[in-house]
């Protein structure tokens, strides 16, 4: 078998540098040597990095923001509500009218145990059970990337609710990029701990992809937060590289 010629050769570095300046995401060029070194030192271990000390607190960082953002007594439909933890919190602390949708029967039973109204249903079959604008908010927390038809679900979400709350892992996060780009491996990170064959994330996308979609579909991003380098903060322009996870509030224009 013939060896393929190398695709990336650092021999003609100046030509390469010019090309990178032209073609590559400018944000990537700002990646610090420290970060790269940390990443490269980790390369070779096939295990996900061990969770940092803040992992527990950050596990549901989105819930804190949702709780502080939604008004008292509003109505919320949680799409893929899991065990109902978010709705319990919002029903108890903000007296919201909550309704969950969940496919997994065991999770549904947990919802009932927590006193959360939940309908066992498949989001891939749409939200035809629900009338137009019947909720103030619909939530898609870490769910969009797991469904078969994400765009259809986003559209359904903004049909049944006046506003959408969407959180998702950003597959343009720099560690994820380097895993695939430099190592040629499907990324495994602290917050994306799955291997390619057991991941529920069947539609990987990036913050930039999502922003593109909002522009083409007449959807406005009202506010955004990210988890970046262990910190939760407001969304910034360069976050397609730095955000590990994203939370945005959206509405139709």
């Amino acid at each position: 078998m013939n060896e393929n010629p190398p695709i990336l050769s650092l021999g003609d570095a100046s030509e390469l540098a010019a090309l990178i300046r032209d073609k590559v995401d400018p944000a990537l060029m700002g990646l610090s040597a420290g970060k790269l070194t940390e990443y490269l030192n980790h390369v070779g271990s096939s295990q996900p990095r061990t969770p940092g000390p803040d992992a527990g607190r950050l596990q549901r960082w989105q819930d804190d923001i949702i709780e502080s953002t939604v008004p008292q007594g509003c109505s919320i439909l949680d799409l893929g509500c899991g065990h109902g933890d978010l709705l319990v919190r919002l029903m108890d602390r903000k007296q919201v009218r909550g309704q969950g949708i969940e496919l997994d029967p065991d999770a549904v039973i947990q919802c009932v145990r927590q006193g959360v109204p939940v309908v066992q249903a498949d989001l891939d079959e749409g939200l035809k059970d629900f009338a137009d604008e019947s909720f103030d908010y619909a939530v898609l927390e870490q769910t969009l990337q797991t469904v078969r038809r994400p765009i259809a679900l986003l559209q359904e979400m903004l049909r049944v609710a006046r506003r959408g709350i969407v959180s998702f892992p950003n597959f343009a996060y720099w560690r994820v990029r380097l895993d695939l780009g430099l190592r040629g491996r499907m990324p495994i990170t602290e917050r994306l701990p799955y291997r390619w064959y057991d991941t529920p994330n069947i539609h990987s996308f990036t913050l930039q992809d999502f922003e593109d979609w909002t522009r083409t579909c007449g959807v406005r991003i009202l506010s955004g937060h990210v988890l970046a380098e262990g910190q939760v903060r407001e969304l910034r322009a360069s976050d397609n590289l730095y955000a590990e996870e994203v939370l945005v509030f959206v509405e139709r224009e």
Partner: peptide, 18 residues
């Protein structure tokens, strides 16, 4: 029955036990 209640925005629980 659950779907009709959903249509009205009334809270409802529906479980299909395997």
């Amino acid at each position: 029955f659950a779907t009709a209640l959903c249509q009205l925005g009334k809270p409802v629980t529906y479980v299909d036990v395997p």
